[in-house]
Design a protein around this nucleic acid. Structure first.
Length: 978
RNA sequence: GCGAGGGUAGCCAAGCUGGGAAACGGCGGCGGACUCAAGAUCCGCUCCUGUAGAGGUCCAAGGGUUCAAAUCCCUUCCCUCGCACCA
C-alpha cells in the first residue's frame, strides 16, 4: 500500500480552497472582524452603510440568492480598503403569509412541498417536524441555509445586528412608523378590490390560488338599460310589473359602443333575480347578485326566475332611448359580470355571427313569444369608422376570416384584431357630439366619465376564472382596508426629489422609479392574517410584507443595543426621540438619544442592492418612506439594481429542483470561485447564467493564479533598483489596471473591475513572461510588487485567497491593506507605445509565416527612413488630413522630389495616426524605432527560433535580398523572412 | 397594449456613453512545443480567399444620415422582464 493509495503529494502547494477558506472564516468569527461600530467621536463622514433586502426564508437559499448578497459584500469590502467604516447588516423577513402557507402545505403532506423541502433543499426526514410551526420553519432555513450559506461565502456581515420581522422590538419600531404615518394622514381606511374566496369567506393571496393566478381585475362599465322587471319566481312573463323602471345593467369593456347596441342577450336556462341594489330595482343573474353583494352594494333579492322570464321583453338604451329586445343565447355566461349582455353586431364579430345565427332560426323564437320578423329586422348599427374595414367592421372581419359559425376558432382572432384596430384607430361617428371625430383610444375614459352616475355604473370582474386552493370560487370583493396613500401629491413630490438625488445604478433605472411614482395608487398595507406586526390601532390586521420593509434599514443601526431596552419602554416617544432628537418629545429617554446618535452616525444608506423586479414596489416604497420620515441628508444615496440568474440557460426553479445550492457549489469549487464567478459573469444589473463548465474554468484560473503566486512568494524578493524597461512597462500597465478597477468599483461594476484586475492583467503578464528574463532581481521585484497590488485589487472578490497570499507575502491580510492607488511615477506611456510596436511586429511576422507557410531561419527587419518620419511629423502638426499633410510636406524641397512616394506614406500615416492622440503621437515620434527593434532582437530570436537582423531602410550596408526595405513606413517596419 | 432591457462570429460575451472599418476575452475545435504518455502549461490558427504582413464580405432584417456605422436616425421581426396589492 502506501504509494498507490495516498497518491503523490502534489508539490504540497496546490490550491486547496477548503482549507484556506475555513481558516479565514474561523479567524473572522473569532476576531469579530466585520462587527462595525461608530468610531469614537467621528461624525459619520467615514461611515458607509450598505444594505440588501433581508431574505425571505420561505424556502432554502440557492445560487441566485447568493449573488444578491455577494455583490454588496464586494462593494463593502472595497470601501473598507478605501478606509471607510463599513456596516453591512443582515436580517430576516418573515412577515405575511408565504411561510404560513408553506407550513400548511407541509402539514397537509402535499407532495410538491415535500419534494421541494427534501429533494431540492435536502431537509432531513427527522428535521421535518421542526418545520411545522411558522417560526420553526423560518428558523430552520435561516440557520441551516441562509446563515450557513452566507458565512461560507464569506459575507462581511455584522451578525450582531440580525433580527426577524416578527421580533417584538422590531414590531415596536413598525408600530411607531405606522402611527406616524397615520398622524400625517398617509394611512387611510377605504374600500379596495381583493381576491375573495367565497367558500372560506375571506380574502386570499395569489399564492393561495389553484387557477387564475394571472387573472387581473377588470373594471367593467355597466350600461344601465331600463325596462319592466318580472315580479315573481314563475317563468311567466305575464306577471311582469309595468314599472318600466328596473335597471338591466349590461357589462362591457367598450362603453363607447353603447350607441351600436341592437339587442340584448340572457341565458334562458340560468337563474336570474330581481333585486334591490342600493335601493334600485335591478335585474341580473343570481351569480351577479352575489358579486355585487361582495362589492359593497346593498343587495336584497326580491324574486328569482329563469332567464327565460325576461327573454322577449324590451329595455331602453339610456343613451339613445331606443328600445332593444332581449333575446335568448346559450353562450351567455351568467357567472360572468351581470349575466345580461348587450349586443353590438356592427363592431363585435361574436355578436355579428350570433345575430346571424339567431336570425336564421328566428321562427323558433316564437316559443318565447317573440315576433320572428322583429328579430329578422335587426340590423347592425355602426358607430365608428375605421380604415381597412367596411361600413360594418364586424362583417368585414368575419368575412375576411371566412368565419361560418360561432364555434369557428378564428372568431377569437378576428375579435382581437378588430377590437385592437378600433381602439387605436376607430373614429367615432357624428352622433357622439363632443366626442365625434375622435379616436376611441383618446376619448373612451372621458366618454365613460361623461355618463358616469346616470347611464353608466361600474363593477369589478376577473379577466379569467379564479379558483382557490380549497376549491372555492374566488370573486372580486371590496374590503374595508387600510392603505398607504402613495398617490398623495406632496408625498409624490418629495419622493421624486429623492429620486433626483439618488445615484441610480444603472442610470437608466431612474426613469423607472419616476414612472412608478407616477402610476402608484393607494396601497393596501394590511392583511387579515400572517406573521408580523399588528396594526397598532386596529389589532385585527397585520401590516403586510411590502409595507413593513420600507424604513427598517434604520433599525439595523441600533439593533444590538436596542436589545437592552425593555420592550415596554419602546413607545412612540422613544422612537420620536431617537430619530428626531430631544426636542421632539417632552421628556426624552436618554437611551433613545444614545441610540439616535448611532443612527445618525450610520445614516443615510449609501447603497442598497436589490433585484430589478423590485423597482416597481419595494424600492420605490423605500424611497417614499425615507422621503417622508427623514430630512434630505438622510435619504437613500444610491440603489444598485441586480439582474436575474439563470442556471444552464434555464430559469431556476425550486419546485422543479432546478437549482444549485451555495453549500454544494462551495464544497466543490470553493467560495472564492463561486464569488468570483458570480461577480465576474456580468455586471450586477445584467442577467447572468450559472454554467458549470464556466465555473469549473473559473476555478482552474484561480488555482493557476494561486500556484503562481505561491512560487513567487517562496522565491527571492528581488531588487527594486534593478528594474529595466520591460519591468517598467509592466508596472505602467499595472497603473492602468488600478485606474480601471477603481473607477469600476465606484460604480459597483464588479465585472469590469475583476476583468481588469484578473483577466486583463493576466494578458499583460503573459506577454511579460515571454518577453522578460524572469530570474533577474529586477523582474522578481516587479512580479512581487505586481502580485501584492493585484491581491489588494482582488480582495473584495476573492477575499480568502487574497488574504492568504497577501499575508504570506507581506505579513498582513489583503483586506487590511489599503486599496491601491495609481502611482504616476510608474506610468510610462513611451514604453507602452514602444512595446506595442514590438507586439505588432510579432503579429506581422506570424501572419507572414502563416500565410507563406514558412519557418524562417533569418528575419530581416527594416525600420523606415528618416524622411518618412518627417511626413509623420507633419501629420502630428496639421492633423489627420491627407490634403493638409501633403501641402505641408511639399514645402520641403527634398520631399517634393519624392512626390508619389510621399503621397503614399502620407496616406498610411494619416490612417495610423487616427488611433492615437497628440500626446501619443509625440511620444511615438520621439522614440528611436530602430533601437527598439534592436533591443527586441534577442527576444524575437527566441520566439521564432531564427536569426534576427535589424536595419534602417536607408543604411549603407543594408542587406535586402528581396527588395523589401522600401516597404517600411514609420512604426511599421518592412520585414523579410527567409 | 404600456414601460424597461436585449438580438455581435460554433457557444458565452466585450465594444455600442465622443461613428473610423474583422470586431477584447473565454469556452469549444485544429495544429505545434514540452512529455515515455496523459493532464497541466506555453505558442499559433479558428468568416471567405490568399505562398508577404493583403483583399472580400460581416455585427437580427430593411432603409436613411455620413468621406466613414455594430456604434447615430427611422421602420419591421424576434426574445426577456415588470404592469401591483405578491414575496
Amino acid at each position: 500500500m502506501g504509494i498507490f493509495t495516498a497518491g503523490p503529494a502534489l508539490s504540497g502547494m496546490d490550491y486547496d480552497p477548503q482549507a484556506i477558506e475555513e481558516r479565514w472564516r474561523q479567524r473572522w468569527r473569532e476576531e469579530g472582524r466585520y462587527e462595525a461600530d461608530p468610531a469614537e467621536g467621528a461624525d459619520g463622514d467615514d461611515a458607509t452603510f450598505v444594505t440588501v433586502p433581508y431574505p425571505y426564508p420561505s424556502g432554502g437559499m440557492h445560487i441566485g440568492h447568493a449573488r444578491t448578497y455577494t455583490v454588496p459584500d464586494a462593494y463593502a469590502r472595497y470601501r473598507r480598503q478605501q478606509g471607510d467604516n463599513v456596516l453591512f447588516p443582515m436580517a430576516w423577513h418573515v412577515t405575511g403569509t408565504p411561510i404560513i402557507g408553506a407550513v400548511e402545505r407541509l402539514k397537509k403532506g402535499e407532495a410538491e412541498q415535500l419534494s421541494v423541502l427534501q429533494d431540492t433543499y435536502n431537509v432531513p426526514e427527522e428535521d421535518l417536524s421542526d418545520l411545522e410551526t411558522p417560526m420553526g420553519f423560518a428558523e430552520y432555513f435561516i440557520e441551516e441555509h441562509y446563515k450557513k450559506g452566507m458565512k461560507s461565502l464569506g459575507l462581511s456581515v455584522d451578525w450582531r445586528r440580525e433580527f426577524t420581522t416578527n421580533d417584538e422590538r422590531y414590531s415596536k419600531f413598525i408600530e411607531w412608523q405606522y402611527r406616524t404615518l397615520k398622524e400625517k394622514g398617509l394611512v387611510e381606511k377605504g374600500l379596495h378590490p381583493v381576491n375573495y374566496c367565497t367558500d372560506e369567506e375571506q380574502p386570499v393571496t395569489t399564492h393561495d390560488l389553484l387557477e387564475g393566478e394571472d387573472a387581473e381585475f377588470q373594471e367593467y362599465t355597466l350600461v344601465r338599460f331600463r325596462g319592466d322587471s318580472p315580479d315573481n319566481g314563475d317563468a311567466d312573463r305575464a306577471g311582469a310589473s309595468d314599472d318600466g323602471d328596473a335597471v338591466f345593467p349590461m357589462a362591457t369593456l367598450r362603453p363607447e359602443t353603447v350607441r351600436g347596441v341592437t339587442n340584448a342577450y340572457v341565458d334562458p336556462e340560468a337563474t336570474y333575480v330581481r333585486a334591490s341594489v342600493d335601493g334600485e330595482t335591478w335585474v341580473i343573474s343570481a351569480d351577479a347578485a352575489e358579486k355585487f353583494d361582495l362589492q359593497d352594494r346593498e343587495v336584497e333579492i326580491e324574486a328569482e326566475f329563469a332567464g327565460e322570464a325576461i327573454v322577449g321583453t324590451t329595455v331602453a338604451n339610456p343613451i339613445t332611448g331606443d328600445d332593444v329586445l332581449i333575446l335568448p343565447a346559450g353562450f351567455v355566461d351568467a357567472d360572468n359580470a351581470t349575466g345580461v349582455v348587450m349586443s353590438v353586431p356592427a363592431h363585435s364579430p361574436d355578436d355579428y355571427v350570433a345575430l346571424q345565427e339567431l336570425q336564421a332560426r328566428a321562427d323558433d323564437l316564437t316559443a318565447y313569444g317573440i315576433d320572428p320578423d322583429a328579430v329578422r329586422a335587426i340590423e347592425p348599427i355602426p358607430i365608428l369608422s375605421i380604415e381597412g374595414y367596411g361600413e360594418i367592421p364586424a362583417k368585414s372581419a368575419v368575412e375576411e376570416h371566412g368565419i361560418a359559425s360561432s364555434d369557428d376558432p378564428a372568431l377569437e382572432e378576428a375579435t382581437n384584431d378588430l377590437y385592437n384596430a378600433e381602439f387605436h384607430s376607430g373614429v367615432l361617428n357624428d352622433e357622439y357630439g363632443e366626442f365625434a371625430g375622435e379616436v376611441v383610444e383618446d376619448v373612451r375614459d372621458a366618454f365613460r366619465e361623461h355618463h358616469a352616475g346616470d347611464a353608466f355604473d361600474t363593477m369589478q370582474e376577473f379577466s379569467e376564472e379564479v379558483v382557490c386552493r380549497c376549491g372555492g370560487d374566488v370573486e372580486v370583493a371590496y374590503q374595508e382596508t387600510w392603505f398607504l396613500r402613495y398617490n398623495d401629491e406632496e408625498w409624490r413630490e418629495k419622493t421624486l426629489r429623492a429620486i433626483e438625488n439618488l445615484d441610480a445604478i444603472p442610470e437608466n433605472t431612474r426613469g423607472e422609479y419616476e414612472h412608478t411614482v407616477g402610476w402608484l395608487n393607494e396601497w393596501p398595507c394590511i392583511r387579515n392574517y400572517g406573521l408580523g406586526t399588528r396594526l397598532p390601532w386596529d389589532q385585527e390586521f397585520v401590516i403586510e410584507p411590502l409595507s413593513d420593509s420600507t424604513l427598517y434599514m434604520s433599525y439595523y443601526t441600533v439593533a444590538p443595543h436596542i436589545q437592552d431596552v425593555p420592550v415596554e419602554d419602546l413607545d412612540h416617544e422613544f422612537f420620536d426621540a431617537m430619530f428626531y432628537g430631544a426636542d421632539a418629545v417632552d421628556d426624552a429617554d436618554p437611551k433613545a438619544l444614545e441610540l439616535g446618535e448611532e443612527w445618525d452616525y450610520w445614516y443615510p444608506v449609501d447603497y442598497r442592492f436589490s433585484g430589478n423586479d423590485l423597482i416597481t414596489n419595494h424600492l420605490t416604497f423605500y424611497l417614499y418612506h425615507h422621503a417622508e420620515f427623514f430630512p434630505e441628508p438622510k435619504w437613500p444615496q444610491g440603489i444598485v439594481v441586480m439582474g436575474m440568474g439563470l442556471l444552464e440557460g434555464q430559469k431556476m426553479s425550486s419546485s422543479k429542483g432546478h437549482v444549485v445550492l451555495p453549500g454544494e457549489a462551495i464544497e466543490r469549487f470553493g467560495a472564492d470561485t463561486v464569488r468570483f464567478f458570480l461577480l465576474n459573469a456580468s455586471e450586477p444589473w445584467q442577467d447572468y447564467d450559472w454554467r458549470e463548465d464556466a465555473v469549473e474554468s473559473t476555478h482552474d484560473q484561480l488555482r493557476r493564479f494561486y500556484n503562481r503566486a505561491q512560487e513567487l512568494i517562496e522565491g527571492p524578493a528581488g531588487d527594486r533598483d534593478a528594474v529595466t524597461d520591460v519591468d517598467r512597462w509592466l508596472l505602467s500597465k499595472l497603473q492602468a489596471t488600478i485606474e480601471t478597477a477603481t473607477d469600476a468599483m465606484e460604480r459597483s461594476e464588479t465585472r469590469t473591475a475583476t476583468q481588469a484586475a484578473f483577466y486583463g492583467f493576466d494578458e499583460q503578464l503573459k506577454w511579460y513572461r515571454r518577453r522578460a528574463d524572469l530570474d533577474r532581481p529586477g523582474a522578481r521585484w516587479t512580479l512581487r510588487h505586481v502580485l501584492e497590488t493585484r491581491l489588494r485589487l482582488l480582495a473584495p472578490f476573492t477575499p480568502f485567497m487574497a488574504n492568504e497570499l497577501h499575508e504570506k507575502l507581506t505579513g498582513t491580510p489583503a483586506e487590511d491593506a489599503p486599496w491601491p492607488e495609481v502611482d504616476d511615477d510608474l506610468r510610462a506611456p513611451d514604453l507602452e507605445l514602444a512595446e506595442e510596436r514590438v507586439q505588432a511586429l510579432v503579429d506581422d511576422i506570424n501572419e507572414v509565416a502563416d500565410v507563406t507557410d514558412t519557418d524562417p531561419e533569418t528575419i530581416r527587419i527594416y525600420a523606415a527612413a528618416d524622411w518618412k518620419r518627417q511626413v509623420f511629423d507633419a501629420v502630428r502638426e496639421v492633423g489627420a488630413d491627407v490634403g493638409a499633410v501633403m501641402s505641408e510636406v511639399m514645402s520641403d524641397p527634398d520631399l517634393r522630389e519624392r512626390g508619389n512616394e510621399v503621397n503614399e506614406v502620407a496616406q498610411d500615416a494619416v490612417e495610423f495616426a487616427r488611433d492615437y492622440d497628440d500626446e501619443e503621437l509625440a511620444d511615438l515620434l520621439a522614440m528611436d524605432e530602430q533601437a527598439a527593434y534592436e533591443n527586441a532582437a534577442a527576444f524575437l530570436e527566441r520566439e521564432f527560433g531564427a536569426d534576427v537582423e535589424v536595419y534602417a531602410e536607408d543604411d549603407a550596408d543594408v542587406v535586402d535580398p528581396a527588395d523589401r526595405a522600401g516597404n517600411a513606413i514609420p512604426f511599421r517596419p518592412a520585414i523579410y523572412l527567409e
